[in-house]
Design a protein around this nucleic acid. Structure first.
Length: 563
RNA sequence: CGGGGAGUGGCGCAGUCUGGUAGCGCACCCGGCUGGGGGCCGGGCGGUCGCAGGUUCAAAUCCUGUCUCCCCGACCA
């Protein structure tokens, strides 16, 4: 129970000048958070209540799947990070203690938790196990942004599962997925589970939990039941009307036309009738030529995953030496291996335009298969209008609020986490790791439900259930009634913020709507006259009234019906 | 890392080009009025102009260096 007159809730009439994202503006204006430095934020009391409510929901769902809460330090010795090969990560904060020992600030806790398990687990009888904690993560982000959406220090719930084998991991992973679905629903968020890139975490699979909103940093591809991060999404391309096939490729002069648009316009064909060449160089300096349709773009994450090894774009001099001048390169007549994107047809029904590998010239009438050999790949970025199983995709921005990984033995092997099976054989532990960011969940809720007046919290994570506004002078009958209702609301189990400041009605209403508690009660002169208390539902700003007698219970019933 | 922008009272800003007593709105403090949508009157407090050095009789303003923050992109374990 909280009286606003003495509560540290510094609201602002105007957003910070440098704020761009809606959640950034509103969380600062509402007095929930304050910036300390780039990507460094303090949570003020009301903001921390939101954070803690989310934490509690997550905790309950982790406990429900057998998770055991613990706590591991942020400051850690560098050695385990060297052993797992993660010491080289740029985002990892590195420092030395007074003795000169190399330390790191943890960005996640795989190294430490695996170390504990390695030391303590000897037998299959001790598995499976689920461990988790809420702890600060430190990441030296190249560019923090958008308030608490992308910060250098943040609290994450990270859990880790330890199983005997792949089947055990799969089951643990599925249980986590179910827990994540429940916690996100309970937080009142709109969300998608999407296929994700496993990235450098390595391992056997990954899903991301995405909350769609304008400030989202990721793009999610959705179509019917299909959902994937655009980094890994696949879809069927929209067909393009190709020019008729020719008996053989034919050179056309295209002086100075180095762009798809210029060539397409000159030849009167759609951009999709061109083939774009993207020369890459693999680790061993082997060069390959990736070909996608002129209206498509190479997706470097998909390409990397398909290659299974790092690559870089070829430099102009390398391109010049092996193919031709940049802007005029193509697959015909080269001895480079060619990776042809799945959206390019080779049924002979039409033909493409490609660079001719000499200055100011292209080839038309080019047919994959007939005019060049290729390996078929899927390496393009999905675009709006593509389809998945007949359903047209849409692409939405979203915040990543959670990410789950099947790690396999990626960490248990370098850190020596093994157990003895029934036959007495040493086996590596199979691991999964599961992250969730309460701060991002809070920001996502702000983004998803805010309106012109401010924040509109889902009831489960609002800083308070009810804001009680009293109008009228201190000592007035209105105040006496409000004091009584305030106490009754508490008895009814509602967390209430009581605005008993000596301020005008406009200021109180404006602040209440900015802060966004699900219900606002107003007690003023009208209340006394009508024997009814006005209740405003924040989401939609619809007003109703309840009798003064029994008001708290009526409000509690109403609250339970809210989203 | 590349590009763009900004540091002046708690917040939002003007002043810098053209050097000459540091200003405005809001907030805050005191008194009074008002009391259902940021109300009114009167009186006040508060700023080493990011930092350092330089030029000058004189620097928020000119010069040099430096730090910090924001936006777009790259990156994102």
């Amino acid at each position: 129970m909280t009286r606003l007159s003495g509560y540290f809730l510094p609201t602002e009439r105007e957003p910070p000048a440098d704020a761009e994202a809606l959640s950034h503006k509103l969380m600062v204006r509402a007095g929930l958070v304050r910036q300390v430095g780039a990507g460094l934020w303090s949570w003020l009391p009301a903001g921390w209540r939101v954070h803690q409510r989310i934490v509690q929901i997550v905790r309950e769902e982790m406990d429900a799947i057998g998770g055991q809460e613990m706590l591991m330090p942020v400051l850690q010795p560098a050695d385990p990070w060297r052993r797992t090969g993660r010491y080289a990560i740029d985002e990892l904060f590195k420092l030395k203690d007074r003795r000169g020992a190399e330390m790191v600030l943890a960005m996640t806790h795989e190294e430490i938790v695996t170390g504990h398990v390695a030391a303590a687990i000897q037998s299959y009888r001790q598995l499976p196990m689920v461990l988790y904690h809420f702890q600060v993560k430190e990441r030296d982000e190249p560019r923090p942004r958008a308030g608490v959406l992308r910060t250098r220090e943040f609290i994450m719930k990270d859990s880790y599962t330890f199983d005997r084998d792949r089947e055990g991991l799969d089951a643990a992973y599925d249980r986590h997925a179910e827990a994540y679905a429940r916690m996100l629903d309970r937080c009142g968020l709109e969300w998608y589970r999407v296929e994700a890139d496993v990235g450098m975490m390595g391992g056997h699979g990954s899903d991301e939990y995405m909350a769609p909103c304008a400030a989202g940093e990721n793009d999610v591809v959705l179509a019917g039941g299909y959902a994937a991060n655009i980094e890994v999404a696949s879809a069927d391309a929209q067909p393009v009307s190709l020019p008729a096939a020719l008996d053989a490729p034919e050179v056309v002069e295209t002086p100075g036309m180095t762009t798809v648009d210029a060539v397409a316009r000159e030849l009167g064909v759609p951009a999709g009738a061109l083939l774009k060449a993207y020369p890459i160089v693999l680790d061993g300096e082997e060069m390959k030529l990736v070909m996608v349709r002129g209206d498509h773009r190479v997706n470097e994450v998909k390409l990397q995953n398909m290659l299974g090894q790092p690559f870089r774009a070829a430099r102009p001099e390398e391109i010049g030496a092996r193919l031709g001048p940049a802007g005029f390169i193509g697959p015909v007549g080269t001895d480079l291996p060619i990776l042809l994107d799945a959206a390019v047809l080779d049924d002979g029904a039409g033909a493409y335009v490609t660079g001719a590998n000499r200055p100011d010239a292209h080839l038309r009438g080019v047919q994959p298969g007939r005019d060049f050999a290729f390996e078929r790949v899927d390496v393009r970025t999905v675009v709006p209008g593509d389809t998945v199983a007949g359903a047209t995709v849409r692409i939405e921005p979203a915040i990543e609020v959670g990410n789950i990984f099947k790690l396999g033995t990626r960490y248990s092997e370098p850190l020596g986490a093994t157990y003895l099976d029934e036959a007495g054989r040493g086996q590596p532990v199979w691991m999964g790791s599961y992250g969730f960011g309460p701060a991002r969940a809070a920001a996502a809720a702000v983004e998803q439900y805010a309106d012109q007046e401010g924040i509109s919290w889902p009831r489960a994570i609002a800083p308070f259930d009810v804001e009680l506004v009293v109008l009228g002078k201190p000592g007035s009958p209105e105040r006496e009634l409000a004091d009584r209702v305030y106490a009754e609301l508490g008895e009814a189990g509602l967390q209430t913020l009581y605005d008993e400041r000596d301020a005008g009605p406009g200021e109180k209403f404006t602040d209440a709507e900015l802060l966004g508690c699900p219900l606002r009660l107003t007690i003023g002169r009208r209340t006394l006259a009508a024997e009814e208390i006005e209740v405003q539902v924040r989401r939609g700003r619809e007003s109703r009234s309840v009798p003064v007698k029994g008001a708290a219970d009526a409000v509690a019933r109403l609250w339970r019906e809210l989203p």
